[in-house]
Design a protein around this nucleic acid. Structure first.
Length: 509
RNA sequence: GGAGCGUUCGUCUAACGGUUAGGACCUCAGGUUUUCAUCCUGGUAAUACGGGUUCGAUUCCCGUACGCUCUACCA
């Protein structure tokens, strides 16, 4: 009775995978893994005009980055292969024919132009019981004419014949009972003139063939759900139909409407999981990965867009999500995407992450900025020192580059106004003390010691430490930021400290 | 236009019909940090509207408003 849970994500390979898509994957994945079931990736590439090379690979890469690896997919294979609908083309015809024989579908010979003019002619035109008899199809034409048309290979489609005066309904896991009046549903095309199925036929046939037990998808599919329910009823029986859940949409942060790639560009945040380069235009759209998000954070923040576990907890690992996820705690309403909160999640995950792991992730950013890292241990240490002030991975460049090189920019303007000979003397002597301190085997000193020494020297010069700290900080890091001054000295060591003091002294003269 | 779905602080959200309507992000004010960030304390801020049902509605029902999605031989 209770067969193994099997869910699928079925994108069409037309471009980058956007936030909403990744979240749909995530909810599918969490549900499947929570129930110890299978997560299947199926590529819906039945529209040959929209096929984009590389998009399928991109989808797999994005899922891999997120850690949401399918159990079955075009890449991994599986017992229900092939997982690309274009490669399953022959299967769909059989079911379309079955519907024809049953009388639940019919041939339609209208050309796209016919339909166009009809739509212009009649306001609110629907290819349905209201107008189907005015069209060119096997319902309105005589059998002889139809046979003839078919024999001559006249281009045609197969449409579902939606019944009259019926109520079609489904129990949505998130929304409860949803029902439709069949008089308002139109006769959707099932099989296109090129022999490919449309989504409507393909989704039903494949979900059946692949033994899908739960079908989750975006809310935008709800209006076409009655067609799918009808198809299930005609082809396989309602008792075979998977449970449905229509996920709420992710909305743009400002105003209303579904979040789009354009919104990200307009507002300056990523929308795709990873960088996507459109092979036609050769333009790249930035992804969360490249913007410096951790996959853990990305998954976490996506999960919280429309779901919560009923407690105040907001930080969840993937394993925790798997353990706690349930589809009936998913919200009905759409969620506006908040980039500020997204960054907060990432900051939390950066703070949580092991320094060594973090260093490995940060390293490429330093390489790209051409900041040389001689020793990995040193990087690990520095990452631990500054990570609480970073929200995105590239923040480590601005927050930590001074640990590796003399700051390129030094905010002399913040020192100069209150600079005088007394202070100069102080720093000259400080540098001298550090120089003397250096000896074979002695390259640095503990922060506490350095601080004490600094304060003693200040009082000797009759200066308050307070008016010396900021100049010192700026000499070392270039600006008003960073960890404690003496911790920095301890880390970058005496030699570099001296060099930076002397460098700034020059700039100030 | 039609159909379907939705509506709690600015945002994400909690509240098996009974809470001073809770938390988080943002923001503001303090404190810690002789910088910045972290961290801590506190503040501002919400049940779209109107009717019911009920001793009692954020919660259930109806209507209105508003919003969204769909309305392709796209998914």
């Amino acid at each position: 009775m209770d067969s193994k849970v099997r869910v699928r994500f079925a994108p069409s390979p037309t471009g980058g995978l956007h936030l909403g898509g990744v979240r749909t994957v995530l909810f599918n994945y969490l549900f499947a893994k929570h129930h110890k079931g299978d997560f299947i990736l199926r590529i819906e590439d039945t529209d040959q005009t929209r096929f984009v090379p590389g998009a399928e690979q991109y989808i797999q890469d994005t899922l891999a980055w997120c850690g949401l690896v399918p159990d079955e997919s075009p890449l991994h294979g599986g017992p229900y292969a092939p997982y690309r609908q274009s490669e399953r083309k022959a299967m769909y015809k059989e079911y379309a024919d079955k519907l024809i024989v049953q009388g639940n579908a019919y041939y339609a010979f209208d050309t796209p132009e016919d339909l166009d003019t009809k739509r212009k002619e009649i306001p609110n035109f629907q290819y349905s019981r209201a107008h189907r008899m005015e069209m060119k199809n096997s319902l309105s034409l005589s059998k002889e004419v139809v046979d003839d048309l078919l024999k001559n290979n006249t281009p045609h489609v197969i449409r579902i014949k939606v019944p009259e005066n019926e109520e079609v309904s489904l129990e949505d896991v998130i929304r409860g009972h949803v029902s439709f009046d069949t008089n308002m549903v139109d006769d959707k095309v099932l099989l296109k003139a090129d022999g490919m199925p449309t989504y409507h036929l393909a989704v039903v046939v494949d979900d059946y063939l692949m033994k899908i037990t739960h079908a989750f998808r975006g809310e935008e599919w709800l209006p076409s759900a009655p067609v799918h329910v009808l198809l299930w009823k005609y082809l396989f029986g309602l008792d075979q139909m998977p449970a449905w859940a229509h996920l709420p949409l992710i909305l743009k942060p400002d105003g209303n409407g579904k979040l789009s790639k354009r919104d990200g560009e307009r507002l300056g945040f990523p929308v795709f999981g990873m960088d996507w380069t459109d092979p036609n235009t050769n333009t790249t759209t930035i992804g969360f990965k490249e913007r410096g998000f951790l996959p853990e954070a990305f998954v976490n923040l996506l999960a919280m867009l429309g779901w919560n576990d009923g407690t105040d907890q907001e930080i969840f690992s993937l394993d925790e999500l798997i353990e706690k996820f349930s589809m009936d705690r998913v919200h009905k309403g759409g969620a506006k995407f908040d980039y500020e909160k997204a960054k907060w999640y990432n900051g939390e995950w950066i703070k949580k992450m092991d320094n060594e792991k973090l260093a490995n992730l940060v390293r490429p950013y330093f390489d790209a900025a051409e900041i040389e890292i001689h020793e990995n241990n040193y990087l690990v240490k520095v990452v631990g020192l500054v990570k609480e002030r970073c929200q995105l991975l590239p923040d480590f460049i601005t927050q930590a580059s001074f640990y590796f090189q003399i700051p390129k920019q030094i905010d002399i303007a913040s020192i100069a106004p209150k600079w005088d000979e007394k202070k100069r003397d102080f720093f000259v002597e400080l540098a001298a003390i550090y120089t003397n301190a250096m000896a074979p085997g002695v390259v640095s000193a503990p922060a506490a010691e350095l601080e004490l020494e600094f304060k003693q020297l200040a009082s000797k010069h009759d200066l308050k430490p307070g008016e010396l700290m900021l100049p010192f900080r700026i000499m070392l890091v270039g600006g008003k930021f960073g960890p404690g001054v003496f911790e920095i000295v301890e880390t970058i060591q005496l030699k570099d400290t001296i060099a930076r003091i002397e460098h700034s002294l020059q700039l100030l003269s």
